Amino acid sequence: MTWNVQKSFQPMSGNATGTLYLVATPIGNLEDMTYRAVRTLQEVDVIAAEDTRQTRKLLTHFEIPSKTLYSYHEHNKHASGPELIRYLIEGKNIALVSDAGLPAISDPGTDLVALAIEEAIPVVPIPGANAALSALIVSGLPTDRFTFVGFLPRDKKSIEGMLQSLQFAEGTLLFYESPHRVAKTLEHMHRVLGNRRVVMARELTKRYEEFARGTIEECLAWLEEHPPQGEYCLVVEPSDGTATDAQQVWWESLSIEQHVAHYEERNGGNRKEAMKQAAGDRNVSRRDIYNALL
Rank of each mutant, 00 (worst) to 15 (best):
L152R: 07
K276H: 14
L41E: 04
A120R: 13
V23N: 02
N195F: 14
V138R: 13
P153H: 08
L220F: 08
Y176T: 12
E210P: 04
A243C: 09
E43A: 11
D144V: 02
I126H: 10
G128E: 03
L96A: 05
N267A: 14
F151D: 05
R282F: 15
L166W: 07
L152M: 14
L174W: 08
P65M: 06
T19P: 05
R266T: 08
E74S: 15
R282S: 11
E225K: 14
Q247K: 01
T17P: 05
R86N: 13
N270S: 09
W222Q: 04
T110L: 03
D32G: 08
V235C: 01
N291H: 12
M162K: 14
S139L: 05
S255K: 06
Q247G: 14
G101H: 10
N283I: 10
I94C: 09
I94Y: 13
I289E: 02
R53W: 11
N29Y: 04
A129Q: 02
V149W: 09
P228K: 09
G241L: 06
A95Q: 06
K206D: 04
L22R: 01
V138A: 13
V5L: 11
A279S: 08
E177N: 05
D240T: 14
R53I: 06
P65Y: 03
G140K: 10
A135M: 00
E177V: 01
M275A: 10
E252S: 10
I64M: 08
F168V: 07
L223T: 02
P142M: 00
L69F: 13
I137A: 03
V46Q: 09
Y208Q: 03
P11K: 10
E187L: 10
R86C: 01
G18Y: 11
F175R: 03
E74G: 15
M162Q: 13
